[in-house]
C-alpha cells in the first residue's frame, strides 16, 4: 500500500488520483472525528467534504508530506472550532443529538454497551479543549507529537491537557461508575 507520505507528495503536484486515495483512506476517521466533535451526522459529513476541499486548495502549503495526518486533523479541528464559534458554543447533554448518544448494537453484553453509551454522553459533556485531545488520542490514535501539530500546541501541553481531560472524563463518569461497583 502506498504510504501517506508518497500520496501527499503526489497530491502536492496536483495528482487527483492521490487526492482520491487519501480521501478513501481518511473519510471514515475524519467522519468519526467530526461526529464526536460536532455531535451530528450531517455536520460530520459536511466536515469531511469541506476538509478535503481545503486539502486540495491548500496542497501547496503542505510543507511536510510525512506529517500529512496531523495536517489533515489540524484542518479538521480548525473547521470544528470555527463551526463552534459560528453556531454552537457547546453541546449540552440534553441538547446532544441522538447520533451522539445512540447506544451501540448489542455485540458484547450490556456492560460493553453501557461503556459505549457512557463514553458518548461524557464526551458530549466535556469542554471542547478536552474533547478534541481525547478524540485525537483515543479514537484516532495520534501520537503526542501529532496531536501537538494538529492542535497547534506543544507535546508537554498535550500531555497535560490529556491528563486533565481524562480526569474530567472520570469525574463525569463517577456516579455511574460507583453505581456499577
Amino acid at each position: 500500500m502506498t504510504s501517506d507520505c508518497d500520496l501527499a507528495v503526489a497530491l502536492r503536484r496536483g495528482d487527483e488520483r492521490a487526492f482520491a486515495s487519501l480521501f478513501e483512506r481518511y473519510r471514515r476517521p475524519l467522519y468519526a472525528f467530526g461526529l464526536r466533535m460536532l455531535g451530528e451526522s450531517h455536520a460530520a459529513r459536511d466536515l469531511v467534504q469541506d476538509v478535503f476541499l481545503r486539502v486540495w486548495e491548500r496542497r501547496d502549503q503542505l510543507d511536510r508530506p510525512e506529517s500529512f495526518r496531523s495536517w489533515l486533523f489540524a484542518i479538521a479541528r480548525n473547521r470544528c472550532l470555527s463551526d463552534f464559534r459560528r453556531s454552537r458554543p457547546s453541546i449540552a447533554l440534553e441538547d446532544a443529538p441522538q447520533d451522539a448518544l445512540a447506544v451501540a448494537a448489542n455485540d458484547g453484553g450490556p456492560e460493553r454497551d453501557q461503556d459505549l453509551a457512557l463514553l458518548r454522553r461524557a464526551l458530549a459533556r466535556l469542554k471542547v479543549d478536552y474533547r478534541e485531545v481525547l478524540i485525537l488520542r483515543e479514537y484516532q490514535e495520534l501520537t503526542y507529537a501529532e496531536i501537538a501539530v494538529a492542535t497547534d500546541s506543544t507535546q508537554s501541553a498535550v500531555k497535560s491537557r490529556l491528563f486533565k481531560a481524562r480526569r474530567a472524563l472520570h469525574e463525569t463518569l463517577k456516579p455511574a461508575s460507583s453505581q456499577r461497583r
Binding site: F19, A20, F23, E24, R27, R28, P29, L30, Y31, A32, L35, R36, S41, A44, R45, V48, Q49, F52, A104, A105, G108, R112, D115, L116, L118, L119, R120, L134, E138, Y139, Q140
Partner: peptide, 18 residues
C-alpha cells in the same frame, strides 16, 4: 469503548465521494 465506537460510527461516511 472508543475504538469500538470509532468502528461503529465510521460507516456513516462510506457513501461519501471525493
Amino acid at each position: 469503548a472508543a475504538r469500538r465506537d470509532r468502528e461503529e460510527i465510521a460507516g456513516g461516511a462510506d457513501d461519501l465521494r471525493p
